[in-house]
């Protein structure tokens, strides 16, 4: 049975919080633009322009992906903050199965990612980084699928994390590797074998690849998309469903009740 009003409540709260936390929103826009201008221009000067694409142009799908990755991760990790605040108490006493909290939170994280990426897209268009050759239908699909997959990564981390004390660890051991070991900064097909193997196992790689399909297309130089768009979509969809199932299982299985006691009583140990 679906419980859409509660899901709506969680989505609405996410949007309200996003709009109120201006600095979070501003840094979500500034971070990718810095990459584009600083890293993009810097490396662009060193690297040769390959196959008609400047390095900056090559980076556009990567920074769009970055916005979604960071946006979804931060939104999903508010679940950890919620565990420590009263909100999770409201959620677990509400009349729906507890896995439904994961469904709602994952949708909220995907929505946050999608809204931030859309805002960035507008900025990029205004700055002249988008051109008319783009495949807009595919772009919309890529944004949706990548937001969902990033929300999946975020929910997996949130489901296995107790406190935000280890947020720095999450940055270092999850967000950065996921970002760097994808095709965001370099074509996957040019990576050394070991790194390539990691990138192939990284679901986020396929999100960036789908964005490349939409923004750059497949280029003879190899600077465009690396995989077939259908492969990207299949991997992203499969991963999203798997992440949802694992996070829901983790949250509603019997022993997950004991951490819930901690939510209820504010006891950290025991």
């Amino acid at each position: 049975m679906a419980h859409w009003r509660p899901v709506y409540a969680v989505l609405e709260r996410e949007v309200v919080r996003m709009v109120r936390q201006r600095t979070r929103l501003v840094s979500a826009m500034v971070r990718p633009l810095i990459w584009l201008f600083v890293i993009g221009a810097g490396f662009g000067a060193v690297l040769q322009q390959a196959g008609g694409v400047s390095y900056q142009q090559f980076l556009v799908p990567g920074v769009l992906g970055m916005t979604m990755l960071f946006g979804a991760m931060l939104a999903a990790l508010t679940m950890v903050y919620d565990k420590e605040s009263g909100v999770m108490r409201m959620l677990i006493m509400a009349p729906f199965p507890h896995y439904w909290i994961v469904v709602a939170k994952m949708l909220a994280a995907a929505l946050a990612a999608l809204l931030q990426a859309s805002l960035l897209l507008v900025l990029l268009a205004l700055l002249g980084y988008l051109d008319a050759h783009m495949r807009f239908g595919l772009l919309a699909l890529a944004l949706l699928a990548t937001s969902a997959a990033c929300a999946g990564i975020g929910m997996l981390v949130a489901a296995f994390t107790r406190t935000l004390d280890n947020f720095a660890a999450i940055m270092n051991f999850v967000i950065f590797p996921v970002f760097f070991l994808s095709g965001s900064l370099y074509p996957v097909n040019r990576l050394p074998a070991a790194l390539k193997a990691v990138a192939l196992a990284n679901p986020y790689t396929y999100g960036v690849d789908l964005l490349k399909h939409a923004v750059l297309g497949v280029l003879p130089s190899g600077m465009g998309a690396d995989f077939a768009a259908s492969t990207d979509i299949a991997v992203l969809a499969g991963f999203t469903v798997a992440a949802l199932l694992v996070a829901s299982w983790r949250f509603s299985r019997e022993s997950a009740y004991e951490p819930m006691i901690r939510i209820l009583t504010g006891k950290r140990d025991g």
């Binding site: 509660p6 409201m90 504010g266």
Partner: peptide
């Protein structure tokens, strides 16, 4: 322990709680 969202207003908290029901 209170079950409220400190970042939202009174009305917003009640709206959130009500929608959950």
């Amino acid at each position: 322990e209170s079950a409220l969202d400190r970042t939202l207003s009174i009305a917003e908290n009640l709206r959130f709680a009500g929608l959950l029901y």
